[in-house]
Design a protein around this nucleic acid. Sequence first.
DNA 1: GAGTGGTCTAGACCACTAG
DNA 2: TAGTGGTCTAGACCACTCC
Lengths: 234, 234
Amino acid sequence: MVKYQEIARDIRTKITNGIYKTDEKLPKQTELAKKYNTSRVTIQKALDLLHIEGIIEGRKGIGTFVKGPLSAYDYNAHVYSGLTKRLGARGKITSQIISFEVLFPDEEDQEKLKIGKNDPIYYIVRLRLLDGEALSLEYSYMPVYLIPGITEEILKGSIYQYITENLGFTIGSSVRRIRADKPDKYDQQYLECQKDDPVLEIDQIVYLDDGRPFEHSQARHRYDKGDITITNLD
Amino acid sequence: MVKYQEIARDIRTKITNGIYKTDEKLPKQTELAKKYNTSRVTIQKALDLLHIEGIIEGRKGIGTFVKGPLSAYDYNAHVYSGLTKRLGARGKITSQIISFEVLFPDEEDQEKLKIGKNDPIYYIVRLRLLDGEALSLEYSYMPVYLIPGITEEILKGSIYQYITENLGFTIGSSVRRIRADKPDKYDQQYLECQKDDPVLEIDQIVYLDDGRPFEHSQARHRYDKGDITITNLD
DNA sequence: GAGTGGTCTAGACCACTAG
DNA sequence: TAGTGGTCTAGACCACTCC
């Protein structure tokens, strides 16, 4: 992990944990440089990342501020428009495991996860709930050899946290495709939606920082509970 | 406009116009620095922008390469996941004007466009066609005082081009919200969709680089013709 | 005028690729 | 070994805000 990413992660954590609060000013860049024992340009590169993620905002002549959450469904917004989840106080996310199996990959899985036909994958289906109400239905496919030791306990929490903290991997890039779709029978069953209620589907492939894909998944959201916010900066 | 943005724009234009072609290598950073009469760090900052936009890719020890288009609906992908349209050879986009009026803003318009109740706005409805087939229905609201002189001729082409090239403005940040919705009667009429066909709606506010909002719009896509690709980088 | 973020420079070293 | 992109440094100037 390079220096500016480490600094960005540290500041991000401090924001998530409320050490730097919403609308509060961060220490000035020269102070941060001194604190992290680095140059001001490196601090700026770290802050650039947080700026792109939309969690801070620099104001000339004043300082750098922590931004508040953007969307009513902040959970979705930041997981998908990118980058970093800061669940905040929007409600409690829980997971109900519907399926948890190990399978051999079909051709599509092989291609998307860049694995051979004899490399088994986890096939996981989870219902995500926000304060106990159905939010989305998520199908995940992950190579077993990359992510060993998944348990139901882990699935109830965050797979990402397990991968980064327990396995020591670093998440790299990702490609997500968003579209509207008609509800299938599982959507109707688990998301409790009607036949003419649309669903919002996010199909994603996520890569480790060494370029290996570790997850292919589809998340299907109730149309009334799953908007996505994308913020572009100057 | 600052130096690194000008350089990014110039290189982007060269890619769009095919001077730098897909999978081709860009000149090396030291050469670009010399050519643009600047330092290598500034070139890197310009390339960073194009990297974020997903149109180039750096490979250590080799060079910087122009990436190919990502999505079947490249038009949507790049307009909305951000940043820069490079329509490429996916088909011809045309516009049919359904409504073009000047109105006084309601409270929502006033708030989103940061204008007073006596500042008139354009109200524009356009049907966008890809190779003659209905693609999306777009509702736009823009303050007249900011964008004077809009004509039907301009509406048939690109408003963005008019704003940047004729009025000399620079586009800044934007916030987009994406959701699935049921089709309303206009969707059914113009997008020729059935009552149970979902639509994908993109609601956006776009700002000039001085922070003034100049456009609030909703684009409603047929669910089978409007996916969106979001690429996150390391 | 003082303080802060935004930009830019010149130079350096490292990581990776290719021959 | 040579070439290229990725990172980092120290220092400088500008733009903007506040007093």
